[in-house]
Simulated scan of single mutants.
Amino acid sequence: MSNVKLLVSVFLGATLIAGVAAQEKKIYRWVDKDGKVQISDQLPPDAVDKARKEYNAKTGSLKNDVQSQLSPAEKAAAEHQAQAEAAVMAEAEKAKRIEQSMLINYATEQDLQRFFDERTDLLKQTIISLKASIQSRRAFLISSLNEMSEAEINGQTLDAGKLKMLAETQALVAEQTAQMDRLNVSYRALQAEFAKTLDKYRSMKAEADSRRIVLPVDAGAAPAQP
């Protein structure tokens, strides 16, 4: 009798295992390396790391949606993309804070103008001083060259020290001229920035004014006595 019970237990156990195996049998759907959709109850080794959907073989219901495993290069690219997107979002948030503080710090356009004037005044003074220095050195060069030309015509020996000084002065004038050109570019850029900022300020100011709630006057109320 015990042998019969043992056989029955083994049979029931095998049946149960077979039932569980049948219940857990899956159908896989994935896209192969050629871009073709594949459907099978066997998953090949080259598809293990690929994105796929797993369905219950018995009911056809979706059991799992497996995402593809990224290679080191793909992971690095994804991280780089995430960092770039985070930087863009941070920059946008910074611009938003600056715009919001603009309305708080500058009550009128004149206040905003004064702020930019403070930024441009030093730049303007530097350009003016540099221009005066260039003009002075150019005048010195012209005068010295005229003197040396007269000396050469009269057969006089040209002074080596003065020739060296003239060469150094000419190089300094060229350097200062290039510096002034850069400062002029910066000044024009600052003016363009102010025009853009002023347009933005006016737009935000108009939007802020439109959001203010104006209480209607009660037509039936008696006017206030002076």
Rank of each mutant, 00 (worst) to 15 (best):
K5V: 08
L7G: 10
V8Q: 14
V10I: 15
A14S: 07
T15P: 06
G19Q: 13
V20S: 02
E24P: 01
R29Q: 05
G35A: 08
K36F: 08
V37H: 02
Q38R: 03
Q38M: 08
D41H: 01
Q42L: 07
Q42I: 04
D46F: 07
A47F: 00
D49C: 02
K50N: 05
K50P: 02
A51W: 00
G60P: 02
G60C: 01
S61R: 03
K63Y: 00
V88H: 01
A90T: 06
A92N: 15
E99R: 14
Q100S: 13
L103C: 08
E109L: 12
D117Y: 09
E118Y: 13
L122R: 07
K124T: 07
I127P: 01
K131E: 01
I134P: 00
Q135V: 09
R137T: 09
N146T: 11
E150L: 12
K162W: 12
K162V: 15
L166Q: 15
L166W: 06
A167L: 09
T169S: 04
R182A: 00
E193I: 09
A195W: 03
A195Q: 08
R202M: 14
K205I: 03
A206P: 08
D209C: 05
R211E: 09
L215V: 06
G220R: 10
A221N: 05
P223G: 11
P223Q: 06
